[in-house]
Nucleic acid binder design. Structure first.
Lengths: 331, 331
DNA sequence: TCGAGCGACTAGAGCGCTCTAGTATCGACA
DNA sequence: TGTCGATACTAGAGCGCTCTAGTCGCTCGA
């Protein structure tokens, strides 16, 4: 079943069928409908391999996205990307990172598809490797602020997010505030900086504690052990690297008899779906996935459609979502 | 950068370069190395669009996999699929389901790539729709036991898994046992049945309670509320539909002052990474993702390579992984 | 010495599209 | 009436591979 079959069935040329399916100008409305009808009758769908290959001489309008398969927040961002890619007439090609399949392999697969640009979600690649990629094809690092030659960055204002978290709990009356940091993962350094600066601004009204956290619940749990081992008086509020880390933390401190939020307030980051669940109700810093996706596509379009040679960093504002895991400290 | 460039650089024909990259017989070892060297020097990588299109006359050897993007367990299964696909010389094409992107859309995209077979992870499609797909291309339903014409099924023995869970807690001395069921989701009915049968086998030593659960923590949390509202004496052990559901359940009952495992034992299903985390330490029924992936690929190969016309259901044995969320009941 | 057989390599016709450079038709306008 | 400009449509040359059907030496056995 090819275009030729549809063309024969509709009594037009192959080229016309192509025009209709590409929604290109140059077909009369009636003919267009006749072609679509023929396609429907034959249950025809264009071959996207051939389509992309055929487009190779001009523009492919396809972009590769690398993401972590089990990573819930990446799913949210992907939604944002899909939502923005369609209207900009870009096709999205996915390549997943799993335990077995490294980011490097995922990227190779996309390059083999000759996609026009690369969006990397929370990339782990070394800056020099990113720069090497960027020399071949526009690269947007999503969620990870990286300084690499030619690499655009689209991210949430991580530092401001942590400032919001600190500001919020400080306004509730907390003074001893801890940060479960992200270590070396995407965004970790920025959030740490945001936390430190915000605490500094609190001056004598704030006492900061840093605890090593990370991407997942297990690091949050480990951080909780460290938290519980702190000398009294312990911090009364905690800003975690992200929601999963916050959830792991909460889980463990509760197990040790601390109540959240009465004994310790916790703020997450991302606003993954779980954070909104009634039984968890995690106060968090929401990343705006729609705008992240939109901005990433805009960056690609600027490079490819508008020919913008500039490397840019687009920073999206986060927003605090108050929920049940925060409260004024007990006196 | 095309094969032609590499051919010219290595001083051979385009066809020979193709032979080398396909690892097809017909090239001398020395020539092979010369070609690869030329490719390395030019930083050449074959165009997989063109490659798949060129193969269209014979066999594509590509298979499409539909999975849920934020679904951690799907990531594990994907790893199993990747691991098995490589040796069987199949290329894996991914298509993710997100909140915005339905399974139907994901499938369409794969069909447009003209993949030779479809692997659906925990598919939500109606049997008649699956049957329609299966009429066009071999379809393997992974994780979901579905009765649809022409659709192969590869899954864990869900019923046995729940029997293992029930048997394990019964051996610990529990008699009042609850199941947080999965409702209508993939595997839900089987696990429910396994639970019921296992309880029936316990005879007078068992009293079963059914509570509605589901795929994620939030359903587990809701089930926990229902659990807490049960008249005393409540069940002392709970077999959840899956790990996430179990985790949501545990979270809520702990909040209400119950201890796990002292007051209530909990068994999950899947063995996602989180289940093994020290702070959670969830006893669970492990699905063997390596074998699931292997079996799925074997089914595809049987259909496509061996021409097996038979529809089959491959059922993989689950295995109980005892951890810290289970203990004998208090007397 | 000859041809069969084999291994190494190449020519060239696809694969199913896209898209440029046309042709045909027709209405408008001078 | 002739011509101009649209609009509607088509021919055909790619896109970068794959793979069949060869060709071209070489060795080897008779």
């Amino acid at each position: 079943m090819t275009m030729q079959d549809v063309a024969a069935h509709a009594g037009v040329s192959r080229a016309l069928v192509s025009i209709v399916f590409r929604e290109a100008p140059g077909a009369a409305a009636a003919t267009r409908e006749r072609v679509l009808q023929a396609a429907r009758e034959l249950d025809y769908q264009p071959d996207s391999r051939a389509s992309r290959l055929g487009r190779a001489r001009t523009r492919t309008r396809s972009l590769g996205v690398v993401f972590g398969v089990g990573h819930d927040f990446h799913g949210d961002v992907l939604d944002g990307i899909y939502a923005a890619a369609g209207p900009a007439d870009y096709e999205v090609l996915l390549s997943g990172v799993t335990r077995q399949r490294t980011e490097r392999v995922a990227v190779r697969a996309l390059l083999a598809e000759r996609c026009e640009a690369l969006l990397l979600l929370g990339s782990d690649l070394a800056p020099r490797e990113l720069a090497r990629l960027a020399a071949a094809v526009p690269v947007v690092s999503l969620l990870r602020p990286v300084r690499a030659a030619g690499v655009d960055v689209v991210r949430t204002h991580d530092a401001k997010g942590l400032a919001q978290a600190v500001g919020y709990v400080a306004d509730l009356g907390h003074t001893r505030i801890a940060h479960l940091d992200g270590g070396g993962v995407a965004g970790g350094a920025e959030r740490r900086r945001g936390f430190r600066d915000a605490m500094r601004r609190l001056g004598s009204r704030g006492a900061a504690t840093m605890l090593p956290g990370g991407l997942t619940e297990v690091e949050g749990a480990t951080a909780a052990e460290a938290f519980l081992a702190l000398p009294e008086p312990r911090p009364t509020a905690v800003a975690a690297f992200n929601d999963r880390c916050a959830l792991g933390f909460i889980d463990v401190v509760r197990r040790h008899g601390l109540r959240v939020p009465q004994d310790v307030s916790v703020v997450g980051f991302d606003d993954i779906e779980q954070a909104g669940y009634g039984h968890l109700s995690l106060t968090t810093i929401r990343q705006d996935v729609e705008r992240l996706g939109q901005a990433a596509i805009e960056r690609v379009a600027a490079r490819l459609d508008a020919g913008d040679p500039e490397v840019r960093e687009v920073v999206i504002e986060p927003r605090l979502v108050p929920r049940g895991s925060t409260a004024p400290p007990r006196r």
